[in-house]
Structures are given as structure tokens and as C-alpha cells.
Design a protein around this nucleic acid. Sequence first.
DNA 1: CAAAAGACGGTAACAATGTTACCGTTTTCT
DNA 2: AGAAAACGGTAACATTGTTACCGTCTTTTG
Lengths: 214, 214
Amino acid sequence: MQDNSSQLNSIFSTRFESLLIKEVGERSMLITATAGQVLITAGQNIKMVPMVMSGTLKVSRVNEEGQELLLYYVREGEGCAMTFSCGMMSQPSLVKGAAEDDLSMLCVPVSIMEEWMTKYPSWKKFVMATIVNEFMDVINSVDAVTFKKMDERLVNYLKEKSKISGSSLVNLSHQQIADEMGTNRVVVSRLLKKLEIEKRLLLYRNQIKLLKEL
Amino acid sequence: MQDNSSQLNSIFSTRFESLLIKEVGERSMLITATAGQVLITAGQNIKMVPMVMSGTLKVSRVNEEGQELLLYYVREGEGCAMTFSCGMMSQPSLVKGAAEDDLSMLCVPVSIMEEWMTKYPSWKKFVMATIVNEFMDVINSVDAVTFKKMDERLVNYLKEKSKISGSSLVNLSHQQIADEMGTNRVVVSRLLKKLEIEKRLLLYRNQIKLLKEL
DNA sequence: CAAAAGACGGTAACAATGTTACCGTTTTCT
DNA sequence: AGAAAACGGTAACATTGTTACCGTCTTTTG
């Protein structure tokens, strides 16, 4: 087990008390994943809880037919509410977790994280803040699916993807977009075509260029 | 502040350690509400966290136009994940809470509940279990809205309502049903009419009788 | 390298759901 | 009793979901 305290300091020093930082450095392991790699699927047991050091972890719900719905992203400096809560209750995961892009995380065994809950106020606060934030993200997903129109959801989705990658080019097929949004490929193609006619983006094979007006 | 330990024992004795039961009895207050009463709306601050002693608490999301979506119910012996997590982070509520039927709850100030998190393992476990369960309920709502057809959702909804009230009569207008399901009154009327023609239920003004075949 | 297989996205046709509008009836308010 | 509001049926149209088919491009395979 290596010492990860140097990376930790830059991200978590303002949030965690020094004793906790020291212990994270000693007792966590650094796990990396490449873009697209699936880290956990619904039904699997949770042995470790992650803190994202770089990259983005994508958490989504998958139904029986393989249809998917994006629930929330875990970004640098954040934890994952599902692993915190399921992990502590020895419940299998309800969701799929995958690397949105190249990802590195500090991971701590569930048993240690439970110990920290009572030992370190700053850890307890971190866990509860994570749960609130990601609960809110899920509720926003519910809101969007329930109340928003498809074209608005699609535009928001593309903007979010562009923001994460830091580029106006989104490298996804219509099928991939439909899957993540929990809708149908034909619907996505139809709306994208409409947006292209409105000169808000340009369509290529497996690629979409967002224009300023979007 | 009255002593609520007698009611507590019957519901929570298997779950809470005796010291905690004693403290809940001393430091909580019993709050009652009549069916339909709204207890908290999105944006309000959370001062107390509830444990339901009898009846059902309904938690739902309301958007700008007043459209609503049922997220989960809190039943006898259960706590509310949203109040636990938002309360601890001093975040205003994200949701609306209302009495589904006549309701009594033991309520504890947020500050005390935080103290208990580190003091009583059984309380920590109760809070985390509540969060996991209700997170799962919310995810099931998301699943239903995203992947299920409306007629199936409607039938499930009616069965759930019947189960809660313990009666095959559901006393709700089509508008109320549409609101809770996050859809449109006309859609509900249309599907209910279809179900009546299929002899799965009977329609009356403000009332629906579920038949065995449903 | 060439043929086959698969991925991709455009399109049509239809089904399911959402939206607005209008109507007659029943209930509530005054 | 009369006015106003709530309720639910229905029509017409818009949006979204679903299946099917097609031509093009990419990858696989022999």
C-alpha cells in the first residue's frame, strides 16, 4: 500500500482534518481506469469506497433490456453516495459505475470508512454532503425525465458532455446518446437533425460539433 | 416535552439500543398531522427529523408549474432520508412532505440527531439504512418513469394506494392521480376508461373501485 | 485485397403519450 | 336559487416511442 498523501493534500486538505488525511494516505489504494471501463454493475457487492482524484466517474441505472439512464457524475474531489450508503449497509450496488474518461481514485475498504464515520467529523460531513449533492443530482434527473421536453434534455446533455471533455466536439453515436438518456435512437437522430437544420450543431459519423448558438 | 418511551418500545426496541430509546423518549416531541396536511415544501429549512409512529408520510417533487411526482413513502417505524441528509448539511429541503393519511411522528431537533450519529451505532445504522432504502425507492421511481409504460405505472399506482388504505376503493380524482404520477389528467382518464372497459375496475366521481382481476 | 458482416444514421409509418380546448354534469359556494 | 368551480368525457393535434427498411461507411475475415 503506497503513500498517497501528496495528491491528497492538494484536493482534500481544506476539507479533512490532518489526522484523517494522514490515515487516508496510509490506508487507501490508488485505483486507475481507462475511459469507458466498467467498475461496478448493479447487484455486485461493494468492498471499497472511492474518492475521485482525477477524471470523472459516471453512475447510471440499467434496466433488464440494457437501457440505461445517467444518474450523476462524480468529479475530482468528490465521493460516491451510492457506494457510501450501500457499502455501509452491506447492500449490493443498485447502479452501474464506469469511467467517463481516464480516471484515478483513492479507494478505502468499507470497514475503515465506517470507523471513520464516528472517528472523524470531517469524514462524516464529507459523506453526508456527498449524499445530499448526489441525491439532488438524481432528483434533477427525475425532474428532467418527468417534466422536460426531449429537445431541451438533449441540448443540456450535449452541453454537459462538452463541458466534461472541454471540447465542442462530442464523440458519440446517436445510439450511445439515446442509451444514456434512456430514450430511442430514432428520437435522437430526429432531434439532432432538427438542431442541425437550425444551425445549432453539425453532424458527422460518431461525432457532433456544437456551435456557439447552441 | 412529554415522555414517548412506551410507543417507542413497541416499534424501535429491536432496532435501537436501550440508552438511545430512553433518550428519544426524553428529547423528542410527538407531532401529528391530518390526512393531506403539508408538512414541508421544497426550499424550507429543516429543523427537525421525523420517525413515523403511525400513518404514512408522502415525499414528492414539485416543479415550477406545480406538477408533482411521488418519490417515496415513509411508513411506520421508518425515517426520512431527505430530512436526515439535508438536515445534517443545513440544506433546505429539496422536496415536499405531506401526510398521506392521519400521521403521528416523533421529531428530534437536527442538532441532537447529529450528536446521536457518533454516539449511537444503532442510530447511525438506522440513518444509513433509511438513506439506502429511500434512495432505492427514488431510483425505482426513475426506472418507472423512464422505462415503464403508462398503463402499467397506473395499475401499480392504484394497487399501491389500495394497499396503503387497505381498501379496494381509491378516493382520488383523475387530476390528483395525474399530478402524483407526473402526467396529464387526460392521459389518466383515457387509460382508466380503457381499464374500465376491460372490467378491471369501476369508475365513479372521485372514486375508483379496483376489481380482483386488476 | 475482396467479400461479408456489422455499425451508423436517415426515413417512413404507426402507436403511445402529452397538450389544449370544449362540453355537459355534479358539487360547492354565496 | 343562482353562480362558480370541480370533474371527467371527448376530439384534435403535437411530441415521443417503436419497428422496419435502406444506403453508406467501417471492420472483420478469409
